[in-house]
Nucleic acid binder design. Structure first.
Lengths: 189, 189
DNA sequence: CTAAACTTTCAGAAAATACTGAAACTTCAA
DNA sequence: TTGAAGTTTCAGTATTTTCTGAAAGTTTAG
């Protein structure tokens, strides 16, 4: 595993960004390494390439597995495990977003839910309660939307993103043609 | 600033989540406190409510300002600064997302851009280069889309989100009516 | 101008997080 | 069943991040 300087820089960058993306430096570097490598790598390869301890590699592999970002490949007649990125860039990104949603949104949503539930009888300042409700509703909206998006076919999702806010225009137009849509204010500009 | 147990729990929760959301515990707690408070609070109020040092409050206020999540209010005839959340829940969320994009996406995008540029003449393994290109394109697509969304009126954006993947159906239909869309290879399964 | 009221800074302490490496564990070919 | 090849665990250490509190800085009423 010899790395060109440029590749090395990129991998170091992914390491630095790692913590901002929800994992640690090692996990970030290893993800980059596996994404950029055109063949599966063994744990020893990885440790050598990145000059990190074998134990650290093992931990990071576990983490990457738990995020479903890598998978293991075994050659018959070779006891070693080989690891590779678990899909296309698009799929990996989806996976990262999915996992981050789980860690960054879901806990708060469930906390809010139970809090709003429990304080039905009320022991909380009006304004605070209202704000909690708004956060709750926003996160729930986001969650449903996100779920929906994840189930769209990649090419549709991509097309949709390319359309950007253009989608607003299209919907306005369509709205006039299809009175079936619920009359939630889809409004105008 | 007396806090009910429930509110206190919520604030502690926001503190815990803080680091996952891109800031630290104190910043998270203070944001929650100000969002739930129905009146502006002084730095001393905050320090007392959360039992943290005055210096820490000052740092966190700076951070919250830099995220544009709070603003300062001054009473005439009172030297104290009072702080409050800078907008509705919706606006605050937008602000958080905007700032996180800056920290989590933009640096990598610019790194990729310059790397792809520089290695035009090529010194990098084919596969690595290709993956870099894909990440670059994905982030750029995301960036444009995100920008576009941020400029939509909140009620439009909300309506759009409520529509969820339903938007796909509408667009498919519309697509037949509007052959203007560019015929970029939108891939296959 | 002065000093009281308030805010910010920052060096060092504390806490949280990540990493190493050796020991324990697992797997499997013979 | 054994032991070589490989993997995982985890106690201790290193690194990074956050927090405190006292000193320095700023503002403004008088």
């Amino acid at each position: 595993m010899k790395l060109t300087t440029e590749l090395e820089n990129m991998i170091l960058h992914f390491g630095e960004m790692g913590s901002r993306w929800g994992f640690n430096r090692t996990v970030g570097q290893m993800l980059a390494l596996l994404v950029f490598s055109d063949e599966p790598l063994s744990a020893d390869d990885i440790a050598a390439s990145l000059s990190i301890s074998r134990g650290n590699v093992s931990m990071a592999l576990k983490e990457l597995h738990s995020w479903r970002l890598i998978r293991t490949h075994r050659e018959p007649g070779d006891r070693k495990d080989y690891f590779l990125a678990n899909g296309t860039i698009w799929e990996l990104s989806q996976q990262v977003l999915e996992e981050r949603k789980k860690r960054e949104v879901d806990p708060t949503l469930s906390m809010l839910r139970s809090q709003l539930m429990a304080s039905e009888q009320d022991e909380m300042p009006q304004h605070a309660r209202q704000q909690m409700q708004e956060i709750h509703d926003l996160l729930e909206l986001f969650n449903h939307w996100f779920d929906d998006m994840q189930h769209m076919k990649p090419e549709h999702l991509q097309a949709l993103m390319r359309l950007g806010s253009g989608v607003g225009k299209v919907l306005e137009m369509t709205d006039r043609l299809r009175p079936k849509t619920k009359k939630k204010a889809i409004g105008n500009d």
